[in-house]
Design a binder for these strands. Structure first.
Ligand code: MN
Ligand code: MN
Ligand code: ZN
Ligand code: ZN
Lengths: 134, 134
DNA sequence: TCATAATTTATACTTATTACAATTATGTAA
DNA sequence: TTACATAATTGTAATAAGTATAAATTATGA
């Protein structure tokens, strides 16, 4: 099932802009901010509006086709990897990478509460940056 | 060791405003935003400035006397509980409560990276709100 | 007391996100 | 094809959290 079909299956009419934003997220697993998506796509779509990017992201998140990732307080990032996982952000290079954690722990919490979102973010310095420090 | 002594021990001269903000956080374990702290303390300190609250919070966080908690993307919260833990935010009543998780998992991540901050937040509906639904 | 430094305050600024209205594209009935 | 209704996109203005700056106040200590 390609990206276009996924949108249709979720009741989203696959406009050009929507397809571009969704495809961008599925192709580039870099946890971009709305502005980065806007800025990168503007090269191919000069008429693109920032509002549209925000609208599409909210639409996709509402249908659970992407997830919002809150690491720093001044930037909301987006992720098309739906499998439950956390993130590691390197404060040196800024890269955000995936961290997968134990499902059993989440099940324990889920027994008592109705979970709708989990944010698990670790900030630090990654292996690469630590080694390149010498 | 009382709050005043803790500030002094950490090289922070214990001004009235600083002591009030720090005491507020230690007394009320509600993970307030900067604005809530400002708004609540203004009742006792009518001359209090929002900038001061932000300044004090940043000062305390810099000395690791409090922790920043990032749950929603539009509000930064603060916590005087320093033991490593995550949070559960109820989307019904808005309350933020503590969630303690396995230290071993964090150790595994720590072997490879230098961790400076961990944010573990769960959003959902709490036991109370689930039961009061009928 | 007086000078100096530290702290607080008020104000203006920045910036991510949202609200809103105007414009454009799309699909369908006549 | 044309006209119309609806959906989607765009540009602009508004909102609001957080930050920067400088003036005003307060504390310190010679
Ligand atoms: Mn991810
Ligand atoms: Mn807590
Ligand atoms: Zn790095
Ligand atoms: Zn609740």
């Amino acid at each position: 099932m390609n990206n276009k079909e996924i949108l249709i299956k979720n009741g989203i009419s696959p406009s050009f802009q929507r397809l571009q934003v969704y495809s961008y997220l599925r192709k580039n697993n870099v946890h971009p901010t709305a502005f980065k998506i806007y800025n990168d796509l503007k090269k191919q779509i000069p008429t693109l509006s920032k509002t549209t990017v925000y609208n599409v992201l909210k639409l996709l998140a509402g249908k659970n086709l992407i997830r919002e990732v809150k690491i720093e307080d001044n930037e909301l990032r987006f992720d098309a990897v739906l499998q439950e996982h956390g993130h590691f952000k390197c404060s040196e290079c800024g890269k955000v990478t995936d961290v997968f954690y134990d499902k059993e722990f989440v099940d324990f919490i889920e027994k008592r509460n109705k979970i709708t979102d989990i944010q698990f973010n670790i900030i630090g310095i990654c292996e690469n940056c630590l080694n390149n420090k010498n």
